[in-house]
Structure formats: C-alpha cells, structure tokens
Amino acid sequence: MLQALALALLYFTNNIEVWNILLLSIIQGCINALDTPVRQSFLVEMVESKNDLGNAIALNSSMFNGARLVGPSIAGVLIASLGEGGCFLINGISFVFVVVSLLLMKIKPQELNKKETNIMKEFKEGFTYTFGFMPIRYIILLLALISLMGMPYTVLMPVFAKDIFHGDSHTFGFLMAASGVGALVAATYLASRKTVLGLERIIPLAAAVFGVGLVAFSLSSNLLLSVILMVITGMGMLMQTASSNTILQTIADNDKRGRVMSFYTMAFMGTAPFGSFMAGSLASLIGAPGTLIFGGIACVAGAIVFARRLPCIIEQVQPVYTRLGLIDDCLDKPEKTDS
C-alpha cells in the first residue's frame, strides 16, 4: 500500500523520475518474494474442512493468477480515463480493504515444532524435493518458459495499440480488457471444478492455446479480430498458470509446500522481468509482431514437450491423489464377479 501511494504522491507532485520507479519496483519485488509464497501456503490453514481443500486451492489459484491478467486490464482502462496518477492512487487505496480483511480473520493457532534450521540446508532440501519429483519439476519448468517467453506480450501491447492499430490509450485498454475477460472466463471454469483430477491434461492444452493465440494475434491487423484473439490468449494463459498452481499446492507435502510455492513464484513472477527485457530488446531488432511469434512458438514447443511426458506425470501423481483420498483405491482394483 505504501509503495503504491508513494508512486501516486511522486506523480501528483511532479517529482517522479526513472530512478524512483526502479527503486520502488525493487521494493515491490522484495514484498512479492515474501508475500506470495506465504499467502499461497497459508491457504491450507484457512480451510477447516479438508474435503473443501481441492476446490479452495482451485479458487485461490484462479483468483491469484486471474488478478495478474485482470489487473493490467483494469489499469489500462483507468489510465485511459484518469491517468497514471489516478491509477496509482486507486491501487494504494484498495489495499486498505486487504489489510482490514486480514485483521478480521480468525485462524486456529497451530503448534509449531521448533527446530534448529540452516537456511542453505533448507534451501537445498526444498530444491531437491521440487526438482527431484518429476511432476513438480515439469510443471515449474513449463511455467517458467511461459512466463519468460509468453507473458511479455503485455509489455508489447502499447506498441500494437499505437503502431499496428493506429490507436491510443483507449485501444490499449480494450486489448488488455479483452485479455482480462478471457482470464475471468477461465477462472470461473476452474473455480467451478469440484476436483483437481484432470488438470494435468489442461496444462499443455492451455499452454498451446496461449502460444497459438499469440502467433495469431501478431499476424492480425484487424482490431476486432485481435480483441477476440486476446480473449482466447488470456483464457489460455490463466488456464495454464492456475492449473499449475492448483496441482502444485495439492501434491506438495505440507512441510515442503512453502518452498515449492517459492519456486513457483520465481518461475511465474521472477522470470517475467527478464522476459520483458528480452522482448523489448528483440522487438527493437525484429519488431513487436516477430517477437510475439517467436514467443508463441516457444510456448507451443514447451506444451508439446510437456504433453509427451504427460503419461509419466499422471502415473507419478496418481499415488499422491490416492493418499489424499482424491482417488478411491477400489478404482484401481478389479471388481469381483459372482461365478
């Protein structure tokens, strides 16, 4: 909240400079690095009935990942109508409701087994667990690829709005809003699912839809068609990231979930700035459309690799689902028949 309000203050006092934005961005990155893994892991303690855990994880991951797409869409509309300063100010004020909601929560205290810990030992243990279990490893690697090569499309959207469609901030707002609409549709579908089963198959399919959507959007010169393609692209992006989030939180051991979600945060949010830098540099050489085509093809290639490993991933995930009670043991046993 303070970071957002500081941006608004600097803007309205005409004191904002590039180094201010860079410094506040670094601070925001540090906040996210602490907040996101804890927030994701905390969900398990919030849900009292474990029968509701699967749906709660799906709803939470849909909200978390959906906000990543819907937020910029809303920002595009606000910038077009109120300007950047108004957008920063509303963002800062919105955190008041978040803080109040957190203070009103009542959580049953849990007994903690305090033990001597070593940061490097804990990190190594978390790294070995995360990348030693094939389903978690492939999900995080695909997510990192999508975030690195695909997500920077949001950075290039102003270029398309101005140079390709010869529009203004309103055009940018429409394009980003379309992406947000697709994310909302996907989030609604995922939140309505009653089980995590089957999400493994959605991950490569959604990644492929996202990649194909990017390629098709980069080749389009019609604004209406491009808005439709943005809806499809936002849907594919949210489906892939939210499904990954849901599965990771479901299959991770309770004592490892925080560290797994830390790697998830690095893959999803940590690679995005590098992807934006790469996209900007590449766009100056081959243009924004060519950059999106390259990124879309990379996303489709990642989806194909993941799909080829899908049978092995499902095979290793099923015992975890069975242990959690998501799959009935009797389903794997042949039925006895009367002779």
Score class of each variant (00 low, 15 high):
4 A>Y: 00
7 L>A: 00
21 I>S: 00
30 C>S: 11
33 A>M: 14
36 T>R: 14
37 P>R: 01
41 S>M: 04
53 L>W: 06
53 L>C: 02
56 A>N: 02
61 S>R: 01
68 R>G: 03
72 P>M: 04
83 G>R: 09
85 G>E: 07
92 G>A: 05
92 G>Y: 05
93 I>R: 12
94 S>H: 06
96 V>L: 15
99 V>H: 07
105 M>Y: 05
108 K>M: 02
111 E>C: 00
116 E>P: 01
122 E>D: 15
128 T>F: 12
129 Y>M: 06
137 R>D: 09
142 L>M: 15
149 M>L: 13
151 M>W: 13
155 V>Q: 13
167 G>P: 11
168 D>S: 10
170 H>N: 14
171 T>H: 08
174 F>I: 14
175 L>N: 05
183 A>P: 09
186 A>E: 09
187 A>L: 08
201 R>M: 07
208 A>W: 10
209 V>S: 09
209 V>Y: 04
210 F>D: 07
210 F>V: 06
211 G>S: 07
211 G>I: 06
213 G>W: 07
215 V>L: 05
218 S>K: 01
223 L>I: 14
226 S>V: 04
228 I>F: 15
229 L>T: 08
230 M>I: 06
238 L>S: 11
244 S>H: 04
250 T>Q: 10
253 D>F: 08
253 D>A: 12
255 D>N: 15
262 S>Y: 05
263 F>C: 03
264 Y>I: 01
264 Y>T: 05
267 A>E: 04
272 A>T: 14
273 P>F: 01
282 L>H: 05
283 A>T: 07
283 A>Y: 00
285 L>R: 13
290 G>V: 01
293 I>A: 03
294 F>H: 02
296 G>L: 04
298 A>S: 08
299 C>P: 13
300 V>E: 09
303 A>K: 12
308 R>M: 14
310 L>V: 04
312 C>K: 15
322 T>P: 09
323 R>W: 08
327 I>C: 08
327 I>Q: 06
329 D>L: 10
332 D>G: 02
335 E>V: 11
335 E>L: 06
338 D>P: 01
